[in-house]
């Protein structure tokens, strides 16, 4: 038996065994860490996102309502402008007719007076001129008055419009927030239950129009624009049915609900699929 080997097992080989075992485990740990750090890149690609991306409410109801309001306001202004123009036109017409009449009258008087009195002509003419002058002055005054009245009216209208706008903006802001949060909740609820079929591809798009009750219950859901894939359409429909009732809507004021959520158009469009 050689002496080196005998020395190794002089304490029955315990020290060297302990060192060997500990080193073995440390090497294993290091290898494990190394493999983990190498694997991480591959694994990242395989991790599926937990949320279903890209499912949106077609048109933000708030924006739609604002557009309607804006259109109505524009129409009202247009109407006001039209009526004002008509008014002005009528006034001008009256004025002209009256002038014409006066002129005719003046001509008649002139004729009669020509026939009547030759010698009084110069005086008459003088008087006539004075009268005409006064008439023109009268006319001018009338016009100025009309102008002033019109300006007043316009100013008042503008003031009222500004007040209305401020009030509406205040109301709209809180309403906007409510609508925003409610749409987000609906979207979240749908994302959680939407189960895409294997035939789903990125870029597919189905639009559903849903009608709801104030309690958040679903009245009906209809496909307004199909994706062309029946299974995909059905998956969207199923998602809507299984996500309903949208109890979050119960907390909304009824007016807000009526304006925004009676009907809602939903777009289902995956954009997170791997294929």
């Amino acid at each position: 038996m050689n002496s080196v080997f005998n020395n190794l097992i002089i304490y029955n080989g315990y020290p060297i065994s302990i060192v060997a075992a500990v080193i073995f485990h440390i090497i294993l740990l290091v290898v494990l860490v190394w493999m983990q750090s190498n694997n991480r890149m591959d694994r990242l690609e395989l991790v599926q996102p937990t949320i279903v991306k890209a499912l949106f409410i077609d048109e933000n109801p708030q924006v739609r309502n604002q557009e309607i309001l804006e259109r109505q306001r524009l129409e009202r202004i247009e109407q006001q402008r039209v009526t004002r123009e008509e008014e002005q036109f009528r006034q001008q017409e009256d004025e002209r007719q009256r002038l014409l009449e006066e002129q005719r009258e003046m001509e008649e008087v002139a004729l009669r007076e020509q026939e009547e009195l030759e010698r009084q002509r110069a005086q008459e003419v003088q008087r006539e001129r004075a009268r005409q002058e006064s008439i023109t002055m009268e006319q001018q005054r009338e016009q100025a008055e009309a102008e002033r009245r019109r300006q007043d009216e316009e100013a008042q209208l503008q003031r009222q419009a500004a007040e209305d706008a401020a009030l509406a903006a205040e109301a709209a802001r809180t309403e906007f927030e409510l609508v925003q949060s409610a749409t987000a909740l609906i979207q979240q609820a749908l994302q959680q239950v939407w189960n895409r079929p294997p035939s789903a591809r990125n870029g597919m798009r189905v639009i559903l129009r849903i009608r709801m009750l104030p309690t958040g219950e679903l009245l009906e859901a209809s496909i307004t624009q199909s994706s062309g894939d029946a299974a995909f359409d059905r998956s969207a429909e199923n998602a809507v049915y299984s996500a309903s009732p949208f109890t979050e809507l119960q907390n909304l004021p009824i007016s807000v609900f009526n304006e925004n959520f009676r009907t809602l158009s939903l777009i289902f469009e995956p954009e997170d699929l791997l294929n």
């Binding site: 029955n12 065994s17 075992a21 500990v22």
Partner: peptide
């Protein structure tokens, strides 16, 4: 595991 590997090594020597 560590202890069993210690014993494995030590028994192997013996």
């Amino acid at each position: 595991s560590v202890v069993s590997w210690v014993i494995i090594a030590q028994r192997w020597l013996v």
